[in-house]
């Protein structure tokens, strides 16, 4: 990996053992505008005080229901959405408010893979131009070298390099997702936010893409933030998993630990919702069914966000926001009355 501009701006020596990404009390609020004169009528608290660390080389799974703010969190970390408050550190450097040239330099170290392989590729560009655009934007190669690099990237993601002059609509969802991955790899990033990269794909293709992502991770020493809306998908690929609910992280734990022994009642209910492909087990097991709907992110509940739907909620939950507390090695949960 060639030395990049950001590396020069590091004030404190960052080592591989430090977290690659550190998110501190991150808030992202979107104004809710109403009426003719666009007066602000409150805020959507999409991300509301998130603390998170992503270690170099790991895959952090991020799960939660639709609208819990997981995509916004991912996009904010790579500075596609402006944070309202808090801080984001990348390789020890504060990138919360970097702009201009420094932000452009940062774009070479972070990339994103999108959910919808149809919307995320410009239909008017050839595959070669899509994959080559990061190369052009950062002036990484020209002419013949550029062509060779594009072919190499396509090969890396398992596509025929001859497809470079075709258009996205000529490909299937799985192949389009490979093109999107090739584009993300073009800048040789260290950190990739995978925003539900397999949710829109056929089940048969999902495994291929997961395997590709894992191969690429070991080949290029990548760090992933892997966003998904159900736990079964992230189980396979993640080292650690963070569970989000209504803009806050409820529980973070190593993947195995989270499945074996969830501490937060929300995680418990999510796990019990995963279907088990064995009718006998499925019949005998106990389901934790949640009542009601997710509360409004415009006016979230006081105290614990989850208390309105929590089977274990007590009066105290409404009074104070439960902090993330340690439950054994690397296991954090934000609950006053955790599961055993």
């Amino acid at each position: 990996m060639p030395e990049t501009a950001t590396a020069k701006h590091i004030t404190r020596a960052w080592t591989v053992n430090d977290p690659l990404v550190t998110v501190g009390d991150l808030k992202v609020w979107f104004p809710v505008a109403t009426g003719l004169i666009q007066r602000s009528a409150g805020y959507v608290h999409a991300v509301d005080g998130v603390d998170l660390e992503i270690k170099a080389g790991e895959t952090l799974g991020l799960v939660g229901e639709s609208g819990c703010g997981k995509s916004t969190l991912g996009r904010t970390i790579i500075r596609l959405v402006e944070p309202t408050g808090g801080s984001i550190k990348f390789k020890g450097e504060d990138i919360t408010h970097v702009r201009g040239g420094k932000l452009r330099a940062l774009r070479r170290e972070m990339a994103m893979i999108f959910q919808d392989p149809y919307a995320s590729l410009d239909p008017r560009q050839t595959v070669g131009d899509i994959v080559g655009e990061p190369i052009d934007v950062h002036g990484l190669a020209k002419g013949k070298q550029r062509q060779e690099r594009i072919r190499e990237l396509l090969r890396v993601v398992g596509m025929n390099p001859r497809y470079a002059d075709r258009y996205p609509h000529e490909f299937s969802g799985g192949q389009r997702q490979r093109i999107g991955i090739a584009r993300a790899l073009a800048v040789e990033p260290q950190f990739i936010v995978c925003d539900e990269p397999i949710s829109a794909l056929d089940v048969s293709i999902q495994a291929q893409i997961i395997n590709l992502l894992e191969n690429l991770q070991s080949k290029f020493k990548l760090t992933y933030l892997f966003i998904a809306h159900d736990l079964s998908v992230v189980k396979h690929i993640s080292n650690r998993i963070a569970v989000m609910y209504l803009g806050k992280v409820m529980e973070v734990a190593p993947a195995g630990q989270l499945y074996k022994r969830p501490r937060h009642p929300y995680t418990g209910s999510l796990l019990s919702a995963i279907p088990i492909p064995d009718p006998a087990v499925e019949l005998g097991r106990e389901r934790v069914l949640l009542k009601g709907d997710v509360a409004s992110p415009v006016d979230p509940p006081s105290g614990c966000r989850f208390r309105t739907r929590c089977p274990r909620a007590k009066p105290h939950c409404a009074e104070e926001i439960p902090p993330l507390e340690t439950f054994g090695q690397e296991h954090l949960a934000a609950c006053f009355y955790p599961l055993d």
Binding site: R104, R107, A111, M112, A119, D122
Partner: peptide, 25 residues
């Protein structure tokens, strides 16, 4: 559409986004 976000995520400037992606579309 996501490809606009994708183009921003690779660090493209507004002028490039408008000329290369929005205009053709």
């Amino acid at each position: 559409r996501d490809f606009v976000l994708a183009t921003r995520s690779i660090g493209a400037r507004d002028t490039r986004l408008m000329a290369r992606h929005l205009l053709p579309n």
